[in-house]
Design a protein around this nucleic acid. Structure first.
Lengths: 238, 238
DNA sequence: CCAAAAGTGTTTTAACTACACCCATGC
DNA sequence: GCATGGGTGTAGTTAAAACACTTTTGG
């Protein structure tokens, strides 16, 4: 984590951080055609100005999952977002001078929601394209790489990618999302067929607005079938 | 973890445990036709006689991965085994009276190797069939369930299941392994075709011995192709 | 009418499924 | 000779891949 919040500890007695265990969040977003990650800037400490993942300390009375949720909320004002633990990073030298084990999470946010809710937040945060990530503090580049790998795997087995899109989207938007995440190109026709036959999408009575070409059908996904597919998994073998 | 080794801490100054972070290992083995887990018995503390996962404390100077390897070696004398982190379990109430975050690992061992090397070890340890697991200490049942889920997922995407078999095995042994792990039944003929066409297996000049039916061809797996398939993944869509 | 993206249809190829059947060996 | 597992072959179905083509809309 970034030590940004370590001062909270001294403010009250009721909120107590656990020594040596932090939480770090990889926040993925999808903008236009590219996958991006939200990074925050160090405001204090030995590495002022450097960028890193959003982080914080695990507190005595909360679970790791709750902590991740809280830390995320503090920055983005978003709740109810897709959040999954990656793993713990426990190298003794990952943070200089002290021993900190971090529990890393990754999360998929819808940029539209983010823009609405997070506009008021003050902390220095910025979206970076996935192939233009700067040098990050500690082992955060490693954590990010790992989470990308994880995302690429998970996205093929469960319909989690949808969390990156706005509520209403077109088939081609969805296709571009998969192309970008997996780094492949897909056939429009075959993609349509495959995605539609799994009945995950519900066509809406709406069409795209203000586009300078034929307006595309908008879809949302069926939460029931989404649940089913998340449970039993599916195979996105493109 | 089980607190069995917490006394080590006071023996020397050079070896120091980290307060509040433990390591737990789910050890899978495959015997005849059934998937089993190695559990150890509590010898001291508030829950004498109860079974749990093999555990220990993370030490100041070692990484979590190294700790898992060490703890595993102390019990089984096995090294060089398949070991992967599951995730961290961080519920504040998972251990009564104190706050312990545990980093859970799972590992696949070949029972033949285990029998050879581990026969000398003294600790109370026992293999339990996967569908006859007793009540375990703390949240170890939850950890075990999670690791089973993980195993079932991973086994479809990479050839890791092979780690549970002896070096030389028959195709039907391999098939039974998959049947048992995934809880399905497979078609002999189709399984053969599928597994052989991915060129992962190398036929040996040997056949099964001492069986009261036609002796089966023995195979081992090709480590090069194994590497390739582990990297890029495969699809075991049975 | 042209660019640009939406959307449909078809042919080929490969893979999965479900069987039926023969082979070798010990008792 | 029969039970048991080892091993081969095939016909039918389904899905993936590649590509050509039509439709709609703004400028």
């Amino acid at each position: 984590m970034t030590f940004l919040s370590s001062k909270n500890n001294t403010k009250t007695n009721s909120i107590q951080d656990i020594d040596g265990i932090s939480i770090d969040c990889v926040i993925f977003g999808f903008n236009k055609e590219s996958l991006e990650v939200l990074l925050v800037q160090h405001a204090e400490g030995e590495s002022i100005g450097k960028w890193g993942l959003l982080g914080g300390w695990l507190r005595k009375e909360e679970s790791a999952d709750d902590a991740a949720q809280r830390i995320l909320y503090e920055l983005t004002s978003l709740d109810n977002i897709y959040l999954e633990q990656l793993k713990a990073f426990g190298d003794p030298n990952r943070v200089p001078e002290r021993r900190v084990v971090t529990i890393a999470y990754y999360t998929l946010v819808n940029r539209e929601d983010y823009n609405i809710k997070a506009s008021l937040t003050l902390k220095e945060a910025k979206w970076y394209k996935i192939n233009a990530i700067p040098n990050l503090i500690f082992d955060h580049n490693e954590i990010l790489d790992f989470s990308l790998m994880q995302l690429r795997n998970r996205v093929r087995q469960a319909p989690i990618g949808f969390n990156l899109l706005p509520e209403k989207f077109t088939l081609l938007q969805l296709m571009h999302l998969y192309e970008e995440i997996l780094g492949i190109t897909l056939d429009k026709s075959n993609f349509r067929r495959k995605i539609l036959q799994m009945k995950l999408l519900v066509p809406l009575d709406e069409k795209q607005q203000d586009v300078s070409h034929r307006a595309a059908q908008l879809y949302k996904f069926d939460p029931e079938i989404y649940e089913k597919l998340t449970q039993k998994g599916f195979n996105f073998e493109f």
